[in-house]
C-alpha cells in the first residue's frame, strides 16, 4: 500500500491552509462542462504538469450544467484557500453573466482570475451523412426545410451558441439551437446523426475532424487556420463573423496573493513548454500569456463587450 499512500497524499494538515504552506493538500479543479470537451481536455493537459510542479495531486471534477454557470458558482462559493480552482471560460465568464437572468455570481468580483490558458476559433462541423459540406449547403438546406435546421452546441452562453444565433439572424430564419451539457455529449449526437450540425470550439472537434467522423465546414478564425488549412473561414463563405473562444484558470475571490502569484508563475512555465505548445497547436489553440491582472481586466472587458451583443441578439438560455 506504500504507493497508494504516497499517491493519496500523506500531507499532514492542521488548521486552515496558509499561503506559506500552500498547497497543503490536493487541489480540486472544477471543469464546468461534461467530459470530452475543450475545457475538459485543456484542464487535464494543464493539470498534469501543474500537479507535478506543485507536488500535490489535482483532481479534475466535472460539474456541468446551465452553460458552465453551475460549476463556476460552486467555485465562487468555495473557500479561497487555493485548493479549489475552476476553468473560467467565455460561457460562464463572458456571455453567461448577461445571458442568464438569474445568475448568482459576478464574473469579475466573485473570482480571482489567475491565467488565460488557451484561446481558439470555433468551427462548424456536420455529420458526414448530412449532405452538408460547406456554408452554402447549410444555407440551402436551412431554407429548403420549413422548420429549418438543428444545430448543437456545448451549452447556452458559449460563443458557439452566439455564432448559431448570429447565423440565424443573418439568414433571416432562426436555427434551432440544441444545447448540451458539454461538447462531448453534443459531439456524440452529431456523430450519431441525431443532430446534423454543431458549432464547437476547435480543440474538442479537432480529433474528430481528423478522424473523419465529422466534417468541418467553416472556421470562425480571421484567416485559414494553420492546423486545418483545408477548412475555409466563415468570412470566405460570406458569413462575416470572426469569433474566438477562451479558457482560463481562476479561483474564488480573495485568494492570497502569494498563491495567485505561484499559480500564475507555474502555469506560465507550463504554457511555454514545447510539449504543451505542440499539443495546443495540434488542437488549433494558442496558449495564453497574461498576468493575473491582465486576465482579470480581459474578463472584465469581455463581459462588457458581450452584454450589448447578447441583448441585441435576443438569445435566451433555452
Amino acid at each position: 500500500m506504500t504507493i497508494a499512500r504516497r499517491a493519496l497524499l500523506a500531507t499532514p494538515l492542521a488548521g486552515p491552509a496558509f499561503a506559506q504552506g500552500w498547497p497543503s493538500g490536493s487541489i480540486r479543479l472544477i471543469v464546468p462542462f461534461a467530459p470530452g470537451g475543450t475545457t475538459d481536455l485543456v484542464a487535464r493537459m494543464v493539470a498534469t504538469p501543474l500537479a507535478e510542479r506543485l507536488g500535490v495531486a489535482i483532481a479534475v471534477e466535472n460539474r456541468a450544467g446551465a452553460g458552465a454557470t453551475v460549476g463556476s458558482l460552486r467555485a465562487a462559493q468555495a473557500a479561497p484557500d487555493g485548493l479549489t480552482l475552476v476553468m473560467s471560460n467565455i460561457a460562464s465568464h463572458g456571455i453567461g453573466p448577461t445571458l442568464y437572468p438569474n445568475i448568482r455570481y459576478d464574473a469579475v468580483r466573485d473570482f480571482t482570475h489567475v491565467a488565460l490558458l488557451i484561446s481558439n476559433p470555433s468551427v462548424f462541423v456536420a455529420n458526414p451523412r448530412s449532405g452538408i459540406a460547406n456554408l452554402a449547403d447549410l444555407v440551402a438546406q436551412h431554407r429548403a426545410r420549413p422548420q429549418g435546421l438543428d444545430m448543437a452546441s456545448s451549452g447556452a452562453g458559449s460563443s458557439n451558441h452566439m455564432l448559431i444565433v448570429r447565423l440565424g439572424q443573418t439568414l433571416g430564419k432562426e436555427i434551432n439551437h440544441v444545447p448540451f451539457r458539454g461538447a462531448g455529449p453534443a459531439m456524440t449526437a452529431v456523430i450519431a446523426g441525431q443532430v446534423p450540425l454543431m458549432s464547437d470550439s476547435l480543440p474538442s472537434a479537432a480529433s474528430h475532424i481528423r478522424q473523419g467522423s465529422v466534417r468541418a465546414i467553416a472556421m470562425s478564425s480571421e484567416a485559414r487556420h494553420p492546423a486545418f488549412p483545408d477548412v475555409p473561414t466563415m468570412r470566405e463563405q460570406g458569413f462575416d463573423v470572426v469569433s474566438t473562444t477562451w479558457f482560463g484558470l481562476s479561483g474564488p475571490a480573495g485568494m492570497p496573493a502569494q498563491v495567485v502569484e505561484r499559480l500564475a508563475r507555474e502555469t506560465r512555465v507550463i504554457l511555454e513548454t514545447p510539449d504543451i505548445r505542440a499539443r495546443f497547436a495540434e488542437l488549433g489553440g494558442t496558449p495564453g500569456a497574461m498576468t493575473p491582472a491582465e486576465y482579470t481586466e480581459f474578463v472584465r472587458r469581455e463581459v462588457a463587450l458581450w452584454a450589448p451583443l447578447v441583448r441585441a441578439s435576443g438569445a435566451t438560455p433555452d
Binding site: 446551465a66 458558482l73 460552486r74 442568464y100 438569474n102
Partner: peptide, 21 residues
Amino acid sequence: VGTDVQTGQQRFTFGIPELSD
C-alpha cells in the same frame, strides 16, 4: 432540486447554496 441545466434557474433550493447543484 438544484439549478435547471437549461436556464440556470434555481429550483426548490430555498436559497441554500449547497443545493444549487
